[in-house]
Amino acid sequence: MIDIVIVDDHDVVRSGLSGLLSDDPGFDVVGEAATGEQGIRLARELEPDIVLMDVELPGCSGLEATARIRRASQRVRVVVLTAHAEPPLPARLLEVGASGFLSKSSPAEELLTALRAVSRGERYLAADIAQQLALSMLPGTPDTPFEGLTPRELEVALMLAQGMRVKAIGEVMNLSPKTVATHKYRVYDKTRVSSEVELLRLALRYGLMNIDPVH
Rank of each mutant, 00 (worst) to 15 (best):
Ser15Glu: 14
Gly62Pro: 09
Pro142Leu: 11
Leu133Met: 15
Pro48Asp: 08
Ala98Ser: 09
Ala67Glu: 11
Val12Phe: 07
Asp143Ser: 14
Pro107Asp: 09
Leu200Arg: 15
Ala108Asn: 10
Glu122Trp: 04
Pro177Gly: 05
Ala114Gly: 07
Ser176Asp: 12
Val166Leu: 07
Ala168Asn: 02
Val7Leu: 12
Leu200Thr: 13
Ile169Asn: 06
Thr150Phe: 01
Asp128Val: 12
Lys178Gly: 09
Val96Trp: 05
His215Ile: 12
Asp49Tyr: 01
Thr191Lys: 07
Lys104Ser: 02
Glu45Asn: 05
Val214Leu: 15
Arg120Gly: 01
Asp143Ala: 14
Pro48Trp: 04
Thr66Ser: 04
Thr66Asp: 01
Arg120His: 12
Asp23Glu: 12
Ile6Glu: 11
Ala65Thr: 14
Ser18Phe: 00
Ser106Ala: 15
Ala157Glu: 03
Arg41Ile: 12
Thr191Glu: 02
Phe101Arg: 01
Arg70Leu: 06
Arg41Ser: 10
Val118Gln: 05
Leu94Arg: 12
Lys184Met: 14
Arg92Gln: 08
Thr182Lys: 13
Ala98Val: 06
Arg77Leu: 10
Leu63His: 06
Arg152Leu: 15
Arg192Val: 12
Ser194Arg: 15
Val180Arg: 04
Leu158Phe: 00
Phe146Trp: 10
Ile129Glu: 03
Asp49Asn: 15
Met53Pro: 09
Val76His: 04
Ser176Asn: 02
Thr141Cys: 13
Val197Ala: 15
Leu154Thr: 08
Glu153His: 05
Val197Met: 11
Lys184Cys: 06
Glu198Cys: 10
Met1Arg: 14
Val13His: 02
Asp143Met: 10
Ala83Trp: 12
Ile169Gln: 09
Ser194Ile: 06
Val80Lys: 04
Ala134His: 09
Gly31Lys: 04
